[in-house]
Design a protein around this nucleic acid. Structure first.
Lengths: 339, 339
DNA sequence: TTGTAGGCGTTATCAT
DNA sequence: ATGATAACGCCTACAA
C-alpha cells in the first residue's frame, strides 16, 4: 500500500522547505529551474495530488454542491440530477445528493449536515411535506448564512432566492386546449393535493383552458390524490363513477395506470378517450399506446440551476439580486391522443 | 446576514480560550459548570455548528462516500442509490454521486476528483466502456492508496475488493426454466455485448437451462445489442427474421419494446409468445401487459454495499480480507407469461 | 479549572 | 532563490 503523499513528505525527501515545494509545483517564477524540475519529477513519480480538504479549509470553498430532492426513483428528478451533474462536473464541482423522501425532517437534517461547510451552495426541490407544512425556516437560515440556494421545480414564494421552474400552468393549459380542440367535452384532471406548487399551477391551467372555451368546470371531474403513494383504489373509483372522454394527469404513473383501467373496460385509446400526461419519461415512450405528454425538460432545468448556483458561488459581489427562470414546457404528441 | 460562527468567535466574545470553548461544548468534566453553561448558551444562541471541513482535516475522515455509476436514468441504478443513501444517511454519511455515463474517461476523472481527500470510500458500478477496455488501473490505484472500494452489480475479477452482485446466471436460468416449463420451444435471448459482466452471466444461465432440458442452443436466437443506445432497428430485424415463442430480455426497455413489436404483428401475449425481463421497475409494473421479471433488488444491493463500505471505513484493523456478496434474484410473475 | 501549543495540508506574506 | 511563519477551524496532550 502506498498512502497519499503530502507536501511535507516531498520537502523532507528533497531536503527543501514546504513552501519551496508548494511554489515549485505551481511553477512559480521565484523558484529555480533546477529545483522546480526536481520537485515536479518527484511529485509525478509519487503521484502527488493536493488534498482537497486542506484546500477547502484554506479557500473556504469546497467545490461541492448540495442537491436535496424528494425522490430519485422518478424520471423527472433523475433528469434534473443529470443536468446538474453535467454542468457542475464541467465546472469542476462535485454533486452531493441527498434524498428527503418527501419528508420534512429528512430535508432539514440533510440540509443541516451539508450546511456546515460541506458545500458551497444548494440546489433543491421541496418535499411535499415541507410544502404542506409551509415551514421554510431551514431554507431561510441557509440563505441568511450567505449560502447560495436555487430552488428547482417545487418552489415557494416564501423564500427569496433563485428559482428555476417550468410554466406548469401553461403546460396544463396547452394540454387541455389540445383536448378541447379534438372535440373532447368531458375532460378530467387527475392531480395531487394543491399544496404542491406544481399541482396548483397545473390545476389553474386546466381550468383556464376550460373557461376560455366556455366549458363548465365540473369539480367532480377533478381527482386529487396523495403524493406519497400510488392510490390505485382512488383512480378505480374515479373511473367507475365518472364518464369522461379525456384525461389530463400530472404524472406518468397516473396516466399509465388510468389507461390500463379504461382499456380493461373495453375502451379504445385514443378513439373513445384521450390521455395526456406530464413528464416525458420512459413510461411515456414505451407505454402502449405511447403517451402524449407535456415534457418538462428536467435536464435543462438541472443545467440552468447549476449554472445559476455556480455563478452566484463564484461571483465576488454581494448584491442580493434573485431571478426566477421560467422554462416553457413542450407538448409531445404520441398515440394517446388523436393526432 | 449572519455568517457562520467559529470557536474563535465564541472565545473572543466570552473572553476565554478556544480550547475552553471546545471542551465546554463537549461537556468536558474539566470545565466548570459555570463556564460550560455560559459557553453552551452562547453557542446555542448564535447557532454554532462545528465546521465539517476542519473536522475532516483533523480526523482524516470526511463522512462522505463516493458513488460512481454509469447512469442514473435507469431504474435499477436509481434503486441502488436509494439503498446506499438510506444506510449511509442513517450512519451520518453523505453520498457524493458521480455519473460516468458509460464512459471510461469520465469514470477515471470522477474517481480522481474524489480520491484526493473528498471521500472515505467508493461504491461503484463499472461503465460499459471500462469493461470493454478491461482497464482497471484507476481502481487499483485507489485500493493501493488504502481507500476502501465496493463494486456493485457490474464488477470485475481483476480488482481485489468487496463486491455485491446478484446471481445473474441463476436469474436467467430460472427465467428460462420457467419458459421451458410452460412448453416454450423457441426461446430467444435479447442481451448486450458479453464484455458486460452481467450480460455474460445471464447468457450462461440461459444456455444452461436449455442444455439441461436437452434443447438446442440456436445462436441465431441470441441477439446482442449495444449498451449505449437503444437499437430499435436491431430488434425489429430480429423479430422479422426469427420465429420465436418466448423471449428473455436483459432489461425492461428491450422487453417492452419487443412486446410492442409483436403486438403490432397481431400476436397475443402471453398466449402466442411469452416475455420475461430483468429489473422490476416502473415499466414492468405499468406495461400492458405487465411484465414477468427477474427482480434484482437494487435497493438491497445498495444497502449492503454501503454497509460493507462503512464497516471497512470504520474498522481499525488493516487486514485485507474481501468478500463477495451474492444476492438471489427473484422471479416476479405477472401477465407477460402464462401463470 | 483554564490555557498554551502543535498539528491536520495547503497557501500566501514576508523575511533572508 | 529559498525559507520561516501565520492562517483556515478544530482538537488534544500537556502546562500552568
Amino acid at each position: 500500500m502506498k498512502p497519499k503523499i503530502t507536501l511535507k513528505d516531498i520537502a523532507r525527501e528533497l531536503e527543501v522547505s514546504i513552501s519551496t515545494v508548494s511554489k515549485a509545483l505551481k511553477n512559480s517564477e521565484e523558484i529555480s529551474r533546477d529545483t522546480k524540475e526536481k520537485v515536479q519529477a518527484f511529485a509525478k513519480l509519487y503521484n502527488y495530488k493536493p488534498n482537497n480538504i486542506a484546500i477547502s479549509l484554506k479557500n473556504k470553498r469546497t467545490k461541492n454542491i448540495g442537491v436535496v430532492i424528494p425522490a430519485i426513483v422518478h424520471h423527472f428528478f433523475t433528469t434534473v440530477i443529470r443536468g446538474i451533474e453535467k454542468y457542475a462536473n464541467a465546472k469542476g464541482y462535485n454533486v452531493i445528493v441527498c434524498l428527503s423522501e418527501e419528508s420534512f425532517d429528512r430535508e432539514v437534517i440533510n440540509m443541516e449536515m451539508l450546511a456546515n461547510g460541506s458545500i458551497d451552495g444548494f440546489i433543491m426541490s421541496l418535499s411535499s411535506e415541507t410544502q404542506l407544512k409551509g415551514d421554510y425556516n431551514h431554507l431561510k437560515e441557509v440563505t441568511e448564512q450567505g449560502i447560495p440556494l436555487v430552488l428547482v421545480d417545487r418552489v415557494t414564494n416564501e423564500v427569496e432566492c433563485d428559482k428555476v421552474i417550468i410554466d406548469d400552468e401553461l403546460g396544463a393549459y396547452v394540454a387541455t386546449k389540445k383536448l378541447i380542440e379534438q372535440g373532447r367535452k368531458k375532460i378530467a384532471l387527475i392531480t395531487t393535493d394543491d399544496y404542491l406548487s406544481v399541482s396548483k399551477a397545473r390545476t389553474e391551467g386546466y381550468k383556464k383552458a376550460l373557461l376560455e372555451s366556455k366549458m363548465d368546470i365540473d369539480e367532480s371531474r377533478i381527482l386529487k390524490l396523495s403524493t406519497m403513494e400510488m392510490d390505485e383504489q382512488g383512480i378505480q373509483d374515479f373511473f367507475k363513477n365518472n364518464d369522461v372522454d379525456a384525461v389530463l394527469c400530472v404524472n406518468e404513473i397516473f396516466t399509465v395506470y388510468s389507461m390500463r383501467l379504461v382499456q380493461n373496460k373495453g375502451l379504445n385509446i385514443p378513439e373513445d378517450i384521450s390521455f395526456i400526461g406530464f413528464t416525458d419519461g420512459l413510461l411515456s415512450q414505451y407505454a402502449n399506446p405511447s403517451l402524449t405528454v407535456i415534457a418538462q425538460h428536467g435536464e435543462k432545468m438541472g443545467e440552468i440551476s447549476a449554472q445559476m448556483l455556480i455563478d452566484k458561488v463564484e461571483s465576488e459581489d454581494e448584491e442580493e439580486t434573485f431571478q426566477t427562470k421560467i422554462l416553457e414546457p413542450t407538448l409531445v404528441v404520441r398515440e394517446s391522443t388523436i393526432n
